[in-house]
């Protein structure tokens, strides 16, 4: 485990504090949402093995918003077991498919039934 760069650590600490506050003080994050975001922060900034999750999330953010698909991705993320690589890999695959489907929808300009999330 390589120590983090000083500025990355400051950013990391600030993000973790913000997430905790949003749960404990503001009540705007549920316990599951807090855990999920904390895990994502750890993966993005601490070089933890993420099975490609961070990259997939970047692609998701860069794509067109779609309320229904975004909701499915969120549920998928909340149900991930971040400690298990197999669960993580399956979640990444599902999210990839949802992003691809959303992209296809955008290109076709039609509304189709989204693929089933695991």
């Amino acid at each position: 485990m390589a120590p983090m760069d000083k500025y990355a650590k400051q950013l990391y600490d600030a993000l973790v504090n913000l997430i905790i506050n949003l749960h404990l003080q503001k009540g705007s994050l549920t316990r599951e949402e807090m855990y999920c975001l904390l895990n994502v922060v750890d993966m993005a900034l601490v070089d933890k093995e993420d099975q490609g999750l961070v990259q997939v999330l970047r692609e998701w953010q860069a794509g067109e918003p779609n309320q229904e698909i975004d909701e499915i991705i969120k549920v998928t993320l909340l149900n991930l077991d971040f400690a298990k690589p197999a669960s993580l890999a399956a979640g990444v695959e599902t999210i990839c498919e949802l992003i691809r489907y959303n992209k296809e929808l955008g290109e076709a300009g039609t509304t189709q039934e989204p693929p089933q999330s695991e």
Partner: peptide, 28 residues
Amino acid sequence: VRPTYVELVKEAHTLGMLTSIRDAEELR
């Protein structure tokens, strides 16, 4: 488990040791 700040927060929260903003302040 690599003991990062996040893992510490999760562990403390799971064990009921992180329930108030005051607890969070000390960790911060």
